[in-house]
Simulated scan of single mutants.
Amino acid sequence: MQGILNDVCVFDFETSGLSPLEDRVIEMAAIRVINGVQVSEFRTFVKYDVKLVPKITELTGITDEHLVNGMDEKNALMNLRRVMGPKTLLVAHNAQFDLAFLHYAMFRIAQITFDNPFIDTLTIARDRTTYPHTLTDMCGKYNIPLEGAHRALEDVEGTLALLQAMHKEQPVDDWLNKLGYLKKFGPPKWYPQHAGLVPMQLKYDPR
């Protein structure tokens, strides 16, 4: 039974930095799944005329050369939104990060935002499991193969498998439109208007 997951778009951004206001998406990917069947997939580099800082290349493997012939930001975003659809459930690991970049990109290009429902697999991970909660760690905990972490499509595939494993373990319905944040850091500066914020503390394995 798919239930809440009958129409899902899992997406991921690789970015030039951590600020959704000042930095840019340099690679994006998305997979749309309806009733358990993949119906569409999108992946592209995004043209970026500023030299990447070495840390980003080190983390993602993306170089300036990859981005020279990337799709321009507006067309990339329009293609992404076509895959997402206006009401499809959006899913990401650390969704606050990706949703913020989505919002600022849409607003910069067209002065609009999104109101899709969403689920954050990181929030669920923090509630259900002990630290650490990176996508790589979570896929390891659920015995999900993940190759090429920190590349958009590979991260999307890993997040989709993680979402399905979590939902099979215990339905994720209660986590619709909820964003967890660590109490010690306080709530995020930006979050979707329809998001419910959940203060959380990390759980650790006993030593």
Rank of each mutant, 00 (worst) to 15 (best):
D12Y: 07
F13G: 02
S16R: 08
G17N: 08
G17P: 01
G17E: 10
L18G: 00
L18D: 00
S19C: 03
L21Y: 08
L21E: 15
L21S: 10
D23T: 09
R24N: 11
V25L: 03
V25P: 03
V25D: 05
I26R: 01
E27L: 02
M28Q: 06
N35K: 14
Q38M: 09
S40W: 04
F42S: 03
R43P: 00
T44D: 06
V46L: 10
Y48R: 10
Y48W: 15
Y48P: 01
Y48N: 14
D49C: 06
K51Q: 13
L52D: 04
P54D: 13
P54I: 11
K55S: 06
E58L: 11
I62N: 01
T63G: 02
T63C: 05
E65C: 00
H66Q: 02
L67W: 02
N69E: 13
N69P: 00
G70V: 10
M71Q: 12
M71I: 14
D72N: 15
D72S: 12
E73L: 14
E73N: 04
K74V: 11
N75K: 13
M78R: 10
L80T: 01
R81W: 07
R81A: 07
R81M: 15
R82L: 15
R82C: 12
M84Q: 11
M84P: 01
M84T: 07
M84R: 02
M84C: 14
G85W: 11
G85H: 11
G85T: 13
P86V: 08
K87V: 11
K87N: 15
K87M: 05
T88F: 05
T88S: 09
L89W: 06
A92R: 01
A92G: 04
H93S: 04
N94W: 09
Q96L: 07
F97Y: 14
L99M: 11
L99K: 01
A100V: 04
Y104Q: 12
Y104K: 10
Y104D: 10
M106Y: 02
M106W: 00
M106E: 15
F107T: 10
R108Q: 13
A110Y: 06
Q111T: 09
Q111C: 09
I112Y: 03
I112T: 15
I112G: 03
T113N: 13
T113A: 14
F114D: 11
D115Y: 11
D115V: 11
D120Y: 08
T123D: 09
A125Q: 06
A125D: 07
D127P: 00
T129L: 14
T129C: 12
T129N: 14
T129W: 13
T130D: 12
T130A: 12
Y131E: 09
P132H: 12
P132L: 13
H133G: 05
L135T: 05
L135D: 06
D137L: 03
D137C: 10
M138R: 02
C139A: 15
K141N: 13
K141P: 04
N143D: 15
P145G: 15
L146Y: 09
E147V: 13
G148H: 09
A149F: 05
H150Q: 08
R151Q: 14
R151W: 04
A152C: 03
L153T: 03
E154N: 14
E154V: 00
V156D: 03
E157I: 12
